[in-house]
Write a protein that binds this DNA or RNA. Sequence first.
DNA 1: ACAAAAGTGTTCGGCGTACACCCATGG
DNA 2: CCATGGGTGTACGCCGAACACTTTTGT
Lengths: 238, 238
Amino acid sequence: MHPETRFDNYFKSAFTVDSVIFGFDEGALKILLIRRSEAPFDDYWALPGYFVRQDEDLDEAAQRTLRETTGLENVYLEQLQTFGSPGRHDFGRVITVAYYSLVKIADFTPRADGLSRDVRWHDLSALPDLAFDHNEIVGTATEKLKRSIRTRPVGFELLPPEFTLTDLQHLYEAIWETRLEKRNFRKKILSMQLLVDLERMQEGVAHRPARLYRFDEQRYQELTQEGFNFELREGKSR
Amino acid sequence: MHPETRFDNYFKSAFTVDSVIFGFDEGALKILLIRRSEAPFDDYWALPGYFVRQDEDLDEAAQRTLRETTGLENVYLEQLQTFGSPGRHDFGRVITVAYYSLVKIADFTPRADGLSRDVRWHDLSALPDLAFDHNEIVGTATEKLKRSIRTRPVGFELLPPEFTLTDLQHLYEAIWETRLEKRNFRKKILSMQLLVDLERMQEGVAHRPARLYRFDEQRYQELTQEGFNFELREGKSR
DNA sequence: ACAAAAGTGTTCGGCGTACACCCATGG
DNA sequence: CCATGGGTGTACGCCGAACACTTTTGT
């Protein structure tokens, strides 16, 4: 370690990582929360996360703490923002590096762990009071999601492997909290060459069955690189 | 402080803030760097920044350290990303929260201070080896700048109060490292209603003098809120 | 048959694209 | 009078906007 002591005063902080995990189900956006099992905020709902170890990379810590609190593994986590108000933690100076991700709800079975009493998907539109400044973090993440879905093919991670155009439209509508015009949405999304027609149909629905699609992995990578511009004015019909 | 000791191990880290300050001059993008005056990396060029105090907010710390290393005050700093590899600092675990900003070079006169031997604008295209992982941080900031200029009226902060359309075009060309077609650039930028025609002309240039413009503060705020989409294909003529 | 979504055709206007040519000033 | 940028006019094509009507399934 360093030979000098004049920096010692600075080495008294801790940092944590917290993850905002978005999912999509039943036409609504969800967030994965844990119920804390230790002070402070014992028993409160909170974002999955914990302290970062001394020799641990931030990205790794995010993966590990997500696993240890919810059981989720191999989730692609992207750094969101760092929150560090002096008063945000009772035990001392703790700043948190927030991550976020989009996952298919069906792909994972969250389970509580030593660090959490409970894990559950919550409707984004009806969140309880969360521990620390986690409500603020969720707000920031939601803003970012709204913006990034306009420039990147985001639906990919939120929808099941096979989906209908209406599913995809509902996803956009849920994130943007708006209604889109069906015809124009379809024309736009199809013109991007991002979807592959599976040439199969929905089954067991009480109406004309919809065509099933999947994302074209190749094209998805391209568009993620270049970025695109997905904008549609609000529409009445759905 | 907290009554329990089992968290003590975590409270041994330090964190810093570092700022990437972009400027624009002579048709080229610049970055403000300081020369360090203490170990580690004594005498190396580095981003302006320093340790965050125990009871200090991150945003405040960014402002303060920027002032104390370069003399710049009242700069609008936006959080960029946090860098925290375990090995990035010799003295122990130090993570840094990076900020970035765009400023008019003429508005400030950087001066070295106790924490810096020297302060200077460097051409982004010819940076030296910087201290720590600061080259990586600059790279991340540059990527972000390229992307955000496509969705927000960014030139505002980089250009002098009065400028010509060609100045503005050169700015976009410098950031994107491309050439744009003059006619189309002008039509697009004028159609946004973002510029105010000052009805005055350049003076003392050895060619037809260009019309001077300024940004419309009002409209700038609007567009920053909504976001827009500025995209133009590469063009040959300038 | 009827409900409930799925799915399509078309017109209109705006805006990005790609050009070549004229204008004003200093030297 | 010429070099050096500044500053247009415009035809074309594509794509987003705004419509209403037909098709296919389960009940």
